[in-house]
Computed example of a mutant assay.
Amino acid sequence: MSYLIDMHNHTISSGHAYSTIQEIAKVASDKGLKYVGITDHGPSLQGAANIWHIGNLRVVPETIYGVNILKGVEANILNEFGDIDVPEKFLEHLDIVLAGLHEGPSEIMDVYRNTQAVLNVMENKYVDIIVHLGNPRFPIHYEEIVLKAKETNKLIEINNSSLHTSRSGSKDNCLEIALICKKYNVPMIFSSDSHISFDVGRFDEIFKLLEGANIPEELIINSTVERFENYMKAKGKHRFVQ
């Protein structure tokens, strides 16, 4: 199966990634992708660009090398109240908004407070995707999160990078999350979390992890372009309802 949409990609502006938007778009085009999200880290993560970088994404073309470029951010969840480091006046102009717990910006909390942080961020109408929930450094109650995602129409990310280069110890957690999503019929999205252009659209470790899990294709929002576009339209994202 060919997945032509990858909503989680980092450029040199994240401070610990190694490609430009143009380089990401070129590799995406070469691989036949239709949509990529440019989702650099929010400003509270060490090395990330300041908030005006996010605000100025409007200068980026909507299409590069035939690939639709969605302008976004990976915001940092700061505390148990679900506060993030990107103000609404910036979020409302973005095409896609990711949010997650990260070492550094996020408070070090117990499983209850981590869970509350994610539950509360899902109340933010601008947030679309909750990222790398399998990270063992931030234990959470997965079933509560999945049910809240269903209630608030948020997407649960299954993150390829968590399975081979980042967040060691995530594999079993990611499988558990996917199976809970399957149990409750909650949509997911596969993401590369690329930090270099060559990894854009890379989902190989996810496919290995979920082999035999019998996850229904209709639960994977980016398994078809039509499914992804319909989801974005239903959310009222301005890029898709004009």
Score class of each variant (00 low, 15 high):
230 N>C: 04
140 I>V: 11
38 I>T: 03
77 I>H: 11
114 N>Y: 04
164 H>G: 01
163 L>V: 00
45 L>M: 14
208 K>Q: 13
210 L>C: 00
75 A>F: 07
37 G>A: 05
213 A>K: 06
195 H>G: 01
136 P>E: 06
33 L>F: 10
153 N>V: 01
98 L>S: 00
204 D>I: 08
149 A>Y: 04
54 I>H: 15
89 K>S: 12
173 N>F: 03
231 Y>C: 09
169 G>Y: 00
103 E>M: 04
128 D>T: 00
184 Y>P: 02
124 N>S: 02
219 L>V: 02
25 A>T: 02
69 I>G: 02
151 E>P: 06
26 K>L: 13
39 T>S: 13
41 H>D: 13
222 N>E: 06
115 T>N: 01
200 V>G: 02
241 V>I: 15
91 L>H: 03
104 G>K: 00
87 P>S: 07
68 N>M: 12
202 R>S: 08
116 Q>N: 12
192 S>I: 08
110 D>M: 07
196 I>D: 15
25 A>H: 04
161 S>A: 14
220 I>S: 07
217 E>W: 03
226 E>R: 09
135 N>D: 14
123 E>L: 12
88 E>D: 13
138 F>D: 07
168 S>Q: 13
184 Y>L: 02
212 G>Y: 08
47 G>M: 15
18 Y>H: 07
168 S>L: 15
28 A>S: 10
144 E>L: 12
175 L>Q: 11
164 H>Q: 11
157 E>V: 00
197 S>V: 06
191 S>W: 14
133 L>A: 04
99 A>G: 03
199 D>P: 05
99 A>E: 05
118 V>A: 08
223 S>K: 12
218 E>G: 00
92 E>V: 05
86 V>R: 05
31 K>R: 11
38 I>Y: 14
66 G>I: 01
123 E>P: 02
198 F>K: 15
116 Q>D: 10
124 N>G: 03
211 E>P: 05
82 G>E: 10
89 K>I: 14
113 R>V: 05
167 R>P: 03
11 T>N: 10
118 V>S: 01
235 K>S: 04
22 Q>T: 14
77 I>T: 08
145 I>Y: 02
83 D>A: 10
55 G>Q: 14
